[in-house]
Each structure stands twice: as structure tokens, then as C-alpha cells.
Design a binder for these strands. Sequence first.
DNA 1: ATCTAATTTTGTAATCGTTACAATTTTATA
DNA 2: TATAAAATTGTAACGATTACAAAATTAGAT
Lengths: 135, 135
Amino acid sequence: MDFVHLLISNNIKPSLQRIKIFEYLYDNREHPTVDTIYSNLVGDIPTLSKTTVYNTLKLFIDNGITSTVTIEDNEVRYDAIMEEHGHFKCDNCGNVYDVEIDISALKFKEIKSFKVEKTNIYLKGKCNKCLNKIN
Amino acid sequence: MDFVHLLISNNIKPSLQRIKIFEYLYDNREHPTVDTIYSNLVGDIPTLSKTTVYNTLKLFIDNGITSTVTIEDNEVRYDAIMEEHGHFKCDNCGNVYDVEIDISALKFKEIKSFKVEKTNIYLKGKCNKCLNKIN
DNA sequence: ATCTAATTTTGTAATCGTTACAATTTTATA
DNA sequence: TATAAAATTGTAACGATTACAAAATTAGAT
């Protein structure tokens, strides 16, 4: 995966910080928070500032290569956008998994009243790993 | 609508504050924030504290008669739970509308890997009112 | 009714995630 | 190499939420 050209083709100058942050998002699909991203990169980039992580993620979002996952009230997670998908959070282990959902199949009554530009689907429950551990 | 008995039957003692807060949620379907609820009730209950609004909503959620709507990163909204439904937020006027969606029709590949207990569907875009105004 | 204990409400202070902002550093251009 | 523009950084400020202890209210027993 060529992150430099992905950034350039989305009008983002590929600074070291931006490359590393996007690389982290792309490689680590656990939908990390700002703190997680910062903690895992500050070893690589000792001067890294948390403000830079915030700024960079905002830039990614504005340019359409990242989205937020707000499956939980008290935490904002980030996701490198690939194909459209939903999210499942296990309320036992806290992990957030990607879920392949055919969003175009969603039918609803008020469909003529709104022009829908974005769809987020959030599922919660227990993942199989936890179900097996608990029982 | 008999809010007193609704609270009692959900193991919640019907204090004035609790009745008024649930009544507000039930009657005002714009999915208000804590601030909105507080501002609209403090006239009725002059001693009302914002902490009470937080405490009460948490109690409602724990007892299953309220849920949160986190369609936006930076605001938590509240919803008196009725039948299962999705939400649409117009990014022009900011209003959040209820949307009737048949959630049971959602099919996804990983369905066997998770025990889904709750589903949230968030749509964003433009409502017809705003579309007509803009054009 | 009255006393006592339990519950609920309240206000203040603390916490934590996020943003504002100005200074510094880095990059691009002439 | 000099200058301007852009990106990064650290600190301070902000705002939503929570912790906590005091005050007020309610419920139960006598």
C-alpha cells in the first residue's frame, strides 16, 4: 500500500506525521482513539504532539479518507475509509469489528423525505469469543 | 400517557423530576441534549440541577426506557424508546428525525460471529425542507 | 404525628477530551 | 541563501460529564 500517493491523490501533502498516522489507521483495524494513535506513534516520532493527531485526523476527514466511529457515547474512534461497512462493538471485550453490510438494501418509509448522503450502522452485543469464555 | 405508571412498572420511583424529564422526552421528539432538557424544565422546576438531569437519564437508560443518539461526534442526544427506529440528521438545519426502518431485514456476512443485542442506524444528508430552500 | 433511615436532589469541584492560539520548525520558492 | 508559506508543537482555555458530599425529601416503624 502506497500511502504517500494515496495522500497526494487526495490533496494532502505527505508529511512524516501524516503518513505514519494514516498508515497506523490502515494497518490497525481496531478503530483506534486519538490517545491510542498518539501512544503508539510517539515512540516512532518523539516530537509528536497530540494536537497534530487531532489536526491530521480532521484533515483526513475533510478530504474523505477517514471517518469517525461513534458507536459509544464517550469515545470517538477513527477508521480509514475503505468500502462501505458497519461496525459491531462487543460490550464485554470492548473490541469494535468491521461488518460487511449491504447498505443499499436498507429500505425505510421516509426515504422520499430525505436525501441520504451517509449511512452509519452500529451493532452492539457479544462477540463469539466472549460468549464462549463466559459460558 | 400515564408516565407515573410507566416509571413504576420499570422500577423507577416517580419523583417530580423523573416524571417531568420523561414527559419532556416523550413529548418532544427532537432528541434533545441534556442542556435542552435542562433549559426547558428549569422554568417548571426552579431548583432543578443539571446533575439531576444527567443522573435521571442514566437511570432511564439503565432501566431500558431511554436510549442515546450519538449521530454526531460532539453531542449526545436522548430518546424515549418506543418501537425500534433509525435516525436521520440534516446537516443543514441540524434537526434529527425518526426514521422507520425494518432492522430485522438487515443481513450481514458476519452474523454468525456476533450475538447482536442492539442496532443503531444513523443517516445523514439533507431534509426536503432544506433542499427546497437551498435551490 | 414523630423519629429514623433510606433515597433523591442539589451545587461545587474535579476530570478529561477537544480546541484555540501563538510560537517554533519545516518545507517550498525565488 | 533569503523569504514566504505551511505544518507542527506546547500551553492554555473550554465545555461536557462525573465525583462527591451536603441538603432536602420520602418511606417505614413506632
